[in-house]
Amino acid sequence: MSDILLELKGLTKIFTDDAGTAEVLRSVDLKVPEKEFLCILGPSGCGKTTLLRCIAGFETFTGSVLIDGQPRTQPGTDRIMVFQDFNQLFPWKTVEKNIQYPLRLSGIKDKAELKRRSDEAIAKVQLTGWEHYYPYQLSGGMKQRVAIAKALALKPRIILMDEPFAALDAMTRRDLQKEMLRILGEEESTVIFITHNIQEAIFLGTRILVLQPGGEIVYDEPNTLPKPVTPASDEYGRLWGTLNAALYSRSQG
């Protein structure tokens, strides 16, 4: 299969500190084809963030992370991370410069081209007019939009999102979910999206994964519900129930 973009082979992560050692990921195998929107659900502490950080190259690990068949151990612009933390933008750069800076680092020197790329990305997240604001002047939701725009502008092979909407209020969260769906319709990017929220996973994912401690994959199915999914959609209730059961399968009451 040549359209496999990301492959994890026996990915194992052991944290060692004063308290001892903890095997957080135990030999995780996973294949992510191109243009997939993979949502990962899992109870708190099961290793979701750790998994994403290993893929992003922020952690050392054993086993392998392959992008287009090539091993990755260091961070790189082919895998761009969108964090949950609102403060992931550089406060010393305007919205526009936050987006242009990585582009400049990746070798685009032409000012007009940079402007075109940043304007396009800003328009996609509906922040036109906010180009020259500094991050401290934006709301949390707007900051997350900029972080997404920054990732989109770079056109990475895969975008890694770690609960990017978790700290937002319910209304803003809905808005951003809708926008994500619209953008992905246009972009066809490959995304791994971590969430605690079953509704969010069903709404966004084209495939849903449920992890349990140790990074054990207890559920892995394509999400065939036609988009946009609403709680009124056929099968919504059944899928929700299945995911909920998988999520709580290891907890005792």
Partner: peptide, 14 residues
Amino acid sequence: VPQIYVEAGRNIGL
């Protein structure tokens, strides 16, 4: 310096 800035920087190739 918040770790997240450092990671954001490393992520974009610094």
